[in-house]
Amino acid sequence: MEKFTPERAIVEAIREEMERDDRVIFFGEGVATKHYELVKEFGKERIRNVPLAEGIIVGTAVGASATGLRPIVDILFAPFITYAMEEFVNSAGKLRYISGGQFSFPLVVMGMTGGGWCVGAHHNHNIESWFIHAPGIYVVMPSAARDFKGLLKSSIRDENPVFFFIDIGLLHMPGEVPEQEYTTPLGKAKVILEGEDITLISWGKTVYRAVEAAEELAKEGIQIEVMDLMTLKPLDQESILNSVSKTNHLVVVHEASRNCGFGAEIAAIVSEEAFEYLKGPVVRVTGPDAPPPSSYVLEQAFAPDKDKIIAGVKRALGV
């Protein structure tokens, strides 16, 4: 299997889907400049630069998606979506419902986030839970190169609006990507390591840190099941509950801030639906309730690392 980066996996996904379906278009700030090879292949009509104005970028995608096109928009950094909350949340997320099902919005918004480039809080802010809370929007946040490609392809093909979060820290981290055509289904979590003693759920870069923690704890005889959620909405509740009913313990790890982070929702679901299986507290290991800092040492300290995850696991197990 070939190894390449999520950055390339994303471009391959877009190329394949544009080849497959003439209705797929791709625009955003500097998209045509950066992806000149796609412009050569698909033309300036389908690959477009836009004014630096997120509201109209996303609004245009929403309007186009309701009338026959399938837009992918790159807003660059996820926090820039705040300029387009109206268009994304009120229109893409609600107008299907408001209209009694008359319209659908097959579009993908891509945005980078997470520590890795020391870009500070206006370019790095893990806001995935905002869009899980908002109705009518799917939320995807892959960790492995192959899933960046497979999930982006599925997102482009889906009939619903998708926010596709790209963890900056993973963008240049190569991974195996199958050569043949494939997609990764939305709404399915993946067990990366099987284990009997405790479940560790994560997404984005902290999946790798969870794996590091699991490998270290294996030496102490603790068998950890690590699950990469990949799609946060729709949530693969079944896989979570199956795992927890086997291991009886759960730790959720995410880079996003703790307060009302998605870990809180997962903890609530497990305590409501699988309380009888739990033999200890559900523990969250998360970023702090602060804006992500720029300084390298502070940025590194923001996302949970291996040691914090190990401490969380021990707390959950009561050891």
Binding site: G55, I56, V58, G59, T60, A61, V62, G63, A64, S65, A66, T67, G68, L69, P71, E86, E87, S91
Partner: peptide, 9 residues
């Protein structure tokens, strides 16, 4: 914000 997308389609 939406009409530009409709126009584009």
């Amino acid at each position: 914000s939406l009409v530009t997308g409709v126009g584009l389609s």
